[in-house]
């Protein structure tokens, strides 16, 4: 009986020991995991990891043709020149902003048109609220405003409707930003193939650009003929300039930027 009691007691002790050791092992593993988590939290608190620069794989600047001296108004300004600028445009301008990496301001949206530019919800403000161009103009002051619209309106039947809306848009911008130099840019051409097969037609683009140029004169704003820096001898967009006949590659966006840098009113 005593032996049985002794054996039973020993077994109980052994069982307890096994449980305690297993518990210690499991707790050790779990504690190690928690320490690793705490370290990463402390590291975040100390310093935010800045985003890594992702190298662009596109063609470097040496293929960008510089404008000839008699084409430009001034020596190129630096990127900083555009820090107090605002760009208004559709997806082509969106591509320009992204591919040039300019530190600037932009109200750009795929499909933006002259009749929706002021009131369409574009982007978000610092509080995560959707904003419109009109709200942005009321809240901020810009020294230069660059506008390029028109490619999405090529399907409109009446060109005069297009230019009436464009004029209304610019007059509103002028009233909200009287201090700003306003540049309205020519609509860039499309490739010959695109022009042959869609509503994105170079003849219509040329008609719209004539109207835009006259509008600029009547409103006393600057017309920038950006297309001249990128069209070929046939006055169409070269195939190498675009991924789909309309939107520019990174190197052609750099050409666009170089044109803007050498055509500034203040430096003229």
């Amino acid at each position: 009986m005593t032996n049985h009691k002794t054996i039973y007691t020993k077994k109980r002790r052994l069982k307890k020991s096994v449980i305690i050791i297993s518990g210690i092992v499991l707790l050790t593993i779990a504690t190690y995991s928690t320490i690793s988590l705490s370290s990463s939290i402390l590291a975040w608190n100390d310093k935010k990891t800045p985003p890594k620069d992702i190298p662009n794989k596109d063609i470097p600047n040496d293929v960008v043709e510089q404008p000839t001296p008699n084409d430009q108004w001034n020596d190129p300004v630096t990127d900083d020149y555009f820090k107090d600028a605002l760009f208004i445009g559709d997806s082509r301008t969106q591509g320009f902003i992204i591919y040039t990496g300019l530190e600037t301001n932009a109200y750009v949206s795929t499909g933006l048109t002259v009749d929706t530019a002021l009131t369409k919800d574009i982007g978000f403000d610092q509080y995560g609220h959707a904003t419109t161009l009109e709200e942005g103009l009321k809240q901020n002051q810009y020294q230069k405003i660059y506008i390029m619209l028109g490619i999405n309106e090529l399907g409109w039947i009446y060109p005069n409707i297009f230019i009436e809306h464009y004029q209304t848009l610019i007059e509103t911008i002028q009233s909200l930003e009287p201090q700003a130099d306003i540049y309205v840019q020519s609509i860039l051409p499309v490739t010959q193939e695109k022009s042959n097969n869609s509503i994105y037609n170079n003849d219509k683009i040329n008609t719209y650009n004539d109207l835009i140029k006259k509008m600029a004169t009547s409103l006393n704003i600057t017309y920038l003929n950006v297309r001249e820096i990128m069209e070929n001898e046939n006055h169409v967009l070269p195939e190498e300039a675009t991924s789909d006949g309309i939107h520019l590659t990174q190197s052609y966006c750099q050409k666009w930027l170089e044109y803007l840098k050498t055509h500034t009113l203040k430096e003229k």
Partner: peptide, 16 residues
């Protein structure tokens, strides 16, 4: 299409 990185200030304009 070719994808390119967006500058951080522009990202917050697109992602609230």
């Amino acid at each position: 299409d070719q994808l390119s990185p967006i500058k951080e200030n522009m990202i917050y304009h697109l992602y609230p």
